[in-house]
Every structure is written in C-alpha cells, then in structure tokens.
Design a protein around this nucleic acid. Structure first.
Lengths: 115, 115
DNA sequence: CTATCAGTCAACCATATGGATGAATGAATG
DNA sequence: CATTCATTCATCCATATGGTTGACTGATAG
C-alpha cells in the first residue's frame, strides 16, 4: 500500500530535520532563497563535503530541490513535504482526543470497569 | 543560552519521532492510554529489551512519562513537547513567507524607481 | 525455599551517521 | 596547455543506533 511508503517518507523527513546543521540550512534557504552549495557551505565551519552530504540528505527527504546549472547547483527549500510532519502530529492528537471522548462517554455511562 | 537548550530538545524530539516503531508506540499510547512496558512490548515482535530502549529514548525526549508503581512502570504519552516541532515549522514557514514579502516589496520599489 | 514476574542493565554485533581528507570532472579562462 | 572553479565521489574514522541475548533485582505466590 501507499501507507508504508508514506511512513518511510515521514521517517526520512523527521530524521533529516533532526540534525541541527540541516535545520540551520533549511532556515538559511528559507530566508535567502535558492543558494549555491558553496555559498551555503561558507556559512558553517564544516567542510564543503560535509555540507554537500547534508544537502543530499535533505534532498532525498524532499526538503530541498536542486536546479543544476552546469557546475553550479542551486538549492532551494521545499516547504510542502514538511507538512507531512504536521499531518502526523494532527492525526496523533486526534487519536488522543478521541480517547478522551470515549473515556468521558464511558464514565457518564458508568457501566464497564475492567483493569 | 536557552536557545541552545531548545535546539537540542528539538533535535531529540525529532530524532525520537523519526523511528517507525517509536511512532507506533506513541500512537498505541495515544489510543490506549497509559500502558505497562510489557503490555506495549507484546504488541510488537521485538524483544522486551528493544521496546524498553525505545521507551527510554521517548522518555528522554519528553514524549512519554513514566509512573513507576513498584515493578510496574506505567508509560503515558505526552503530547505537549511535540508542539515544539509545530513551533519550529511555523517559524520556518514565517521566515519563508517574510522573504516573499520583502521580495515583493523590492520588486514594486524597483518598478517604481528604475528605468 | 524456590519459582515467577516486570523491568532494567550490561555486553555484544552489524549497520548508519557525521565528519574529514584527497581524488576526479570538465567547462572556462589565462 | 595549465589553472581555476563548483561539486560530487571514494575512503576512512569514530561514534551512535537498533537489535539481540543473558544476567540481576526484589516482592510475592506456591
């Protein structure tokens, strides 16, 4: 099913976002707009290669896109996939809320009790 | 500063949430309410120890709390810390939106002033 | 007294991750 | 032709992660 796929995507997105450097890159891109890899790398005191790898992780997760203009790669943040996190959170919260409704109903009915 | 602390928290939360098994545990707890470790473990075909470790990760991230009643540990989901993710996302999005405003402003100004 | 039970702790293992360094690529420029 | 430039690829390294199995703990049931 698509479910499994979605779950893997979500894992990738969350994992990609769980690194401080990568979050910083996303923020940077959000404020600066599309940037070259070198330009991004210059902002941090990590090697260009390290940044290049981080970008690839973000790209695999769909959090950034790459427009390659010969040797210059323009990296751009992609907000949309991040909403998968939002969706998951909302779902979880509604499951949680639902439980309270049921609990409340059970309490008012005062019928069952099995621990 | 507190900023650094918050950032580390966020990293921990996102990383904790990035594992499918751990997300499943959160969902389970959200619908069932507080559960014993053994009870949780019985739902998955991983060893009790593996689940115990997952729970500890969730606990460190603040995503679940533990009420120890002698040898029985009651694990309960904590929704509140998850909103840190929401907050981050919202901030990122607003930074992003801001850039568009500025860009738009710059463009209108440019058309006013130039040529 | 011994077995049982709920959990953690302690090793151990394979693989993933984040980082560094040193190629290699291939157009453009001198 | 040699250099420069922007990036990735290939290694290599240390540490983190997810999992397993096997003690250990300490009250209670038999």
């Amino acid at each position: 099913m698509v479910e499994r796929q979605k779950d893997e995507n979500l894992s990738a997105i969350l994992k990609a976002a769980s690194d401080p450097t990568r979050r910083a890159i996303l923020t940077l891109l959000a404020q600066h707009g599309p940037m070259k890899v070198t330009h991004i790398a210059r902002q941090y005191d990590q090697s260009l290669n390290a940044i290049s790898k981080h970008i690839k992780v973000l790209e695999t997760a769909g959090l950034v896109s790459r427009r390659t203009e010969w040797r210059e790669h323009l990296i751009e943040v992609q907000m949309e996939p991040l909403s998968a996190i939002d969706l998951w959170f909302t779902q979880l919260r509604s499951i949680w809320a639902l439980r309270f409704d049921t609990l409340e109903a059970a309490l008012t009915e005062e019928t069952d009790n099995d621990n």
